[in-house]
């Protein structure tokens, strides 16, 4: 089923190879500029009417963000993960809030947590769960969580730690 669908839609949308995970779950990657057309066709002619979720992965080393749109065909119990890769520095993608109103919420979250923007998406720049955040978006992998917590939260006085290697030296071979 998935394979037929893939074969049918590949020429028009320049789909990448189909990665089958389970009988009813597969993933496919396509150029970002083809996404809206592909999702529209999936929804309107192939029964994938439900946007399960929209999420991102930061491929820091490759300089890319990956967006994954999980699309579900309820009648046939099929889920297709649709992926696009974005340039990490531009970090911009077409909004799909006009296709699925719920997408606006996902897009707002991605804006806040990854700094990926979706021009035209409603309330995109309003705070989502972070309040008064001024640092790098926290789900970007170059955000240093430890440094942030050390700068932001006070340490209880009196804390002392020991480096295992140095401590073992002091106990077992102090003379070196």
């Amino acid at each position: 089923m998935m394979r037929d669908l893939h074969a049918l839609l590949t020429p028009r949308h320049a789909l990448g190879p189909l990665e089958i995970r389970r009988e009813n779950l597969a993933f496919v990657t396509l150029p970002a500029s083809n996404l809206r057309g592909f999702l529209t066709e999936l929804r309107d002619t192939q029964g994938f009417s439900h946007l399960v979720l929209l999420t991102a992965v930061d491929w820091l080393e490759e300089g890319q963000f990956q967006l994954t749109y999980m699309m579900n065909n309820r009648a046939r119990d099929l889920t297709l993960g649709v992926r696009v890769m974005l340039d990490r520095t531009t970090a911009q993608m077409d909004s799909i809030h006009d296709l699925w109103p719920t997408a606006a919420t996902y897009q707002r979250e991605l804006k806040e947590m990854f700094g990926i923007t979706f021009p035209g998406s409603p309330r995109l720049d309003e705070e989502f769960i972070l309040e008064g955040w001024t640092d790098l978006p926290p789900y970007r992998r170059d955000f240093d969580s430890l440094a942030y917590s050390q700068q932001t939260y006070a340490e209880r006085p009196g804390r002392v730690t020991h480096d295992p290697r140095e401590y073992m030296k002091s106990k077992l071979y102090p003379g070196g």
């Binding site: 050390q150 730690t161 106990k171 077992l172």
Partner: peptide, 28 residues
């Protein structure tokens, strides 16, 4: 720990020996 919540501390009854520093985590 991304919150810097753990310190490694000596604990009575835990000896420093081969493959064991004798330290144990203390969590804030």
């Amino acid at each position: 720990c991304q919150n810097g919540a753990i310190d490694m501390v000596p604990v009575e009854g835990q000896n420093t020996e081969k493959g064991d520093s004798g330290l144990r985590p203390m969590i804030d």
